[in-house]
């Protein structure tokens, strides 16, 4: 249902983040994308919804070729793809409800969104989702008043209210403590199964990935080096993904920001 073919991305500073990645995701399939910092995980998922412009290659979602689109057509296709971020990326000064409803912006005209007049079924769905993620009592709180785990649940609700076919999840647990991480991962996988959603989950933590994600894709220096079941992650495979000395420590699971500098540059390029 998602087809990525020979995708490459070279940043303006000459750094090659992706060197020909091909990947297929079936409807309802959840895959974990693992790899060391700078392997190109964040770049890859951002190339799918074109927050970052790929240099070459093709991305197909269902029957639609995403790589050729621009303007309104691209925005219409983005509505089919929900995204969840490492630092939650909530609008800090808006309320929980406004943040969730922001997921419907692609379906709402500008003036209606300006006056926060969202369709009645959108509001109903937002309430249902907030009940599902357990935040209905915080509906009118400002996002910056919530804890990390609560924020990530709002982020999940915002992605799901789009009623997407595909979820792109960027390090959902890297800013959370181990216990909250597990409960967020559980919620995420449950929701994917309930809604028959396909998902690509970038994740540092190999143990967490193995526990929740049936299929694992290993990325190293912009190349797919492993694609198979989580049970196939032997020490040998992990060495090929993370390198000789690094992987045991990475598997212990402390997250930092993934390829920081180039990402900032790419975002600025994408804004233009």
């Amino acid at each position: 249902m998602l087809r990525i073919q020979a995708l490459t991305k070279t940043y303006k500073n000459g750094e090659a983040a992706l060197k020909g990645v091909s990947l297929g995701v079936e409807a309802g399939e959840i895959i974990g994308l693992i790899g060391p910092s700078g392997a190109g995980k964040s770049t890859l998922i951002r190339c799918v919804n074109r927050l970052i412009e790929p240099s070459s290659g093709r991305v197909q979602l269902g029957e639609v070729e995403l790589t050729g689109l621009s303007g309104g057509a691209l925005r219409r296709e983005r509505r089919r793809i929900g995204m969840i971020f490492q630092e939650y990326a909530l609008i800090e000064r808006l309320t929980v409800m406004e943040n969730v409803l922001a997921g419907r912006l692609g379906y709402t005209g500008f003036w209606n969104s300006w006056f926060r007049r969202f369709a009645a079924q959108d509001v109903q769905r937002a309430i249902a989702l907030l009940e599902r993620v357990g935040l209905i009592d915080h509906i009118d709180k400002r996002a910056d008043a919530l804890s990390g785990g609560q924020r990530q649940r709002v982020g999940i609700a915002r992605a799901l209210i789009q009623q997407p076919e595909l979820l792109l999840v960027d390090e959902p647990t890297a800013s959370l403590d181990p216990k909250t991480s597990r409960s967020v991962m559980r919620l995420l996988t449950e929701l994917c199964i309930e809604n028959r959603l396909a998902a690509i989950v970038n994740i540092h933590d190999v143990v967490l990935a193995q526990a929740f994600l049936p299929r694992i894709v290993g990325l190293n220096a912009g190349i797919v080096v492993y694609d198979g079941p989580a049970s196939g992650l032997t020490a040998e495979v992990l060495t090929s993904i993370y390198g000789e000395e690094d992987w045991t420590r990475t598997a212990a699971g402390e997250g930092g920001s993934d390829d920081g500098e180039p990402l900032v540059i790419a975002r600025m390029e994408a804004e233009q």
Partner: peptide
């Protein structure tokens, strides 16, 4: 935050 709103398909 800008990225997140753009990702929803907002104009």
């Amino acid at each position: 935050q800008v990225e997140a709103i753009r990702a929803t398909g907002a104009g």
